[in-house]
Nucleic acid binder design. Structure first.
Lengths: 153, 153
DNA sequence: GGTGAAACTATAACGTT
DNA sequence: AACGTTATAGTTTCACC
């Protein structure tokens, strides 16, 4: 897909808020015919613009009330160390996000656990039981002001 | 909903990865009857454990290649200032996440824009044109190691 | 907790401009 | 080549057992 059209963006804006809408309703809300609507959504899926359709769960309702931003810096930055870190991040379900930021060997992680006890276990297994970390600083999230997955398309 | 059962967790694990699965397939994969499966999913929706069903879009494919973690600290922390900040965060589509962290007057924001130009506009309108900010530090995201919305239930 | 039937929807094949 | 139309198979949803 070379570039998104305004039609595509309109579809994405709706589907990013509610993907259970029927094709007919989606077509109405975006001002296109049902057949065009259906074909464009398909094209967005095949182009990978829409990567999946998922249920969003509420962290509080799912009893994940210990949330933190964890900043870690790798003491060593050789390929093997970095690869092992990335693999582990991918496998840990408690880690929802991990971003590398410019200008440092820092990674910003979003971590969710049930409680402090579970976080401590995570910390011991993942962060402490490794020689690859320089500094680890945990910032407890006290309030979630905003958390959306809708991209500003 | 008092507490999630193992059945509920099984349903959530599947639906958080694919919500277009049919009730029959979902029942098979979670080892319950179709009627029980359907009723429990309904209960999860009504209890707000499942908050919505959405399409996930790929930021690169949607041409949102300027991503940053922005740390801001409020210079003033009176109710009006904080409220205005929270309102603005809610209205800005570029801000996907905003967390308050313990022990500081800091907020961690996840921001996505098309490019630097768009971010500069955002910065000028949102961050600079206000007297309420103490420090603002932007950390450009160079690599997304992981980004999922699936909670570890 | 199971069963079945009705209404609705997705999907693809076929026509049309 | 893009759009509209139609038929059908499949799914959701609800009432009842």
């Amino acid at each position: 897909m070379v570039q998104l059209t305004n039609q595509d963006r309109a579809l994405l804006r709706v589907l990013q808020e509610d993907c259970r809408i029927t094709n007919q309703d989606l077509a109405e809300r975006t001002g296109m015919s049902t057949s065009v609507c259906w074909r464009r959504v398909r094209a967005l899926e095949e182009a990978g613009v829409i990567s999946s359709y998922v249920a969003l769960a509420d962290p509080d309702a799912a009893d994940l009330k210990f949330r933190a931003i964890v900043q870690v810096s790798l003491a060593r930055t050789d390929t093997d160390t970095v690869r092992a870190f990335i693999d582990e991040v991918g496998q840990r379900p408690e880690v929802l996000q991990c971003f590398a930021v410019a200008g440092t060997s820092d990674y910003h992680l979003l971590v969710m656990c049930r409680d402090l006890e579970e976080y401590n276990r995570f910390y011991d297994e993942f962060l402490f039981e490794r020689s690859c970390f320089g500094q680890v600083s945990m910032h407890l999230i006290t309030r979630t002001i905003k958390s959306v997955v809708k991209l500003p398309v």
